[in-house]
Design a protein around this nucleic acid. Sequence first.
DNA 1: GACAAATTTCTGAAATTTCAGAAAATAGGG
DNA 2: CCCTATTTTCTGAAATTTCAGAAATTTGTC
Lengths: 173, 173
Amino acid sequence: MQLSATQERFVRRWGEMGTRWGIPRSTAMLHGLLYICDRALTPEEICDTLGLARSNVSTSLRELEDYRLVYRQSVPGDRRSYFTAETDVWEMARHILEERRRRETEGAVSAVQECLASAKREGDKLLTKRMKALQELLGAADTVAAAAQNYPTSVFKRAAQMGSRMLALLAKL
Amino acid sequence: MQLSATQERFVRRWGEMGTRWGIPRSTAMLHGLLYICDRALTPEEICDTLGLARSNVSTSLRELEDYRLVYRQSVPGDRRSYFTAETDVWEMARHILEERRRRETEGAVSAVQECLASAKREGDKLLTKRMKALQELLGAADTVAAAAQNYPTSVFKRAAQMGSRMLALLAKL
DNA sequence: GACAAATTTCTGAAATTTCAGAAAATAGGG
DNA sequence: CCCTATTTTCTGAAATTTCAGAAATTTGTC
C-alpha cells in the first residue's frame, strides 16, 4: 500500500506522539496507518508499507488489540488475519482510558493500600495521613474512569464536550 | 534522615509507580520522600537518604519544580535551598494534569492541525474526515483540562468526586 | 497426519533513557 | 574581588527499551 506524502507524514507524526505517551513508535505508527485506512490490512501489507519487521508488527498488533484500538477480522477462505482500527474517536478514548486505568492506577491503589495498613500498624500518624490523602485521590480518579466505562459512548462524548460547562456549574454550588 | 521500613517501602513503591507513568524512578522516589516528610529537606539530605548522586537530585528537583510538585524555599542566613512537596493531593493532581496537557496534548493538536490542512489541500476526503475527528477529540480533552486549571481546587475536587454521579445525570438527558 | 501458509515467541543487537562522577558555574561572605 | 559553599551542566557508563531476524508454533488443507 502506497501512502501519499500527507498520509506518510501523519503516520510518522503519530508515531512520534506515541513515544510521548509511552507507546513504542512502531506501535503508534501502525495504529496511525490503520486509523487512516478505509479497508482492512494484512500484517504483510503493514510490514511493507511501514518497513517494519514482521515480528514487530505481530507484537504491536497484539498490544493494540489489548487496548481495543484495532480489531482482527478473518475472511472465510483466507487464512490471513485482517486488521482495522477503531475509527470512532470517542470509543477510542474510552478504550484507552480503560486500559490505562488498568495498567497505571490499579497498581498504585494497592501500593498505597499496603503502605496505609503498615503505617497504621506502626502508629505513624503523618504517613497514615498522607496515605489516606493519596487513597482519596486515587479512589476518585478510579471511580470517574470506571464510571466512564459503564455508559454508552454518546454519554461519554457529551460529558467530555460539556466538561468545562459542568465545571462552571459546579463552581456555583 | 533515616526512614522507617514502611516509609522506605512507600518511597520505593512510589518510584516504581513513576516508571509506569513515564517518570524516572529516582525522580519519583525523590517526590515520594518529600511527600511524606513534614519538614523541608536540603538536596544533600535527599542524596544521603535515597543514595542518589547529587547531580541526579538536582535534575530531578528541577523537573519536579516544573510540575509544581515541589517548592523551593530559601532560609535567610543559610545559603542552601530547602525543598518541600505539595501535600494537597488535589492541587497535586491539578498540577500534573496541567503539565501533562502541556507536554502531551499540545504537540498532538498541532500535528493534527497540520495534517488536516494538507489533507484538505490535497482533497483527500478520508484523511480530512479522520483528522477532523481527531481534532474534535483532542480539542475536547484539551478544553476540559484547561478548564480545570481555571477553577479553585475545591471545585476540581468536587468535580472529580462527583464525576460518576455527573455521568449518571448526563445519561438521562 | 503430513504439508504449507501464517503467526507468534525467542534472542540478541541497536537505540534510547537514566543516572553517577567530574567539571563548570553561580552566589554569599569576608 | 577573592574564596568557599552550593548548585548546575556536561560526559560517559549502566540499565532499559525497542525492534529485526531466526526459530518455533499454530492453523487450516488435502
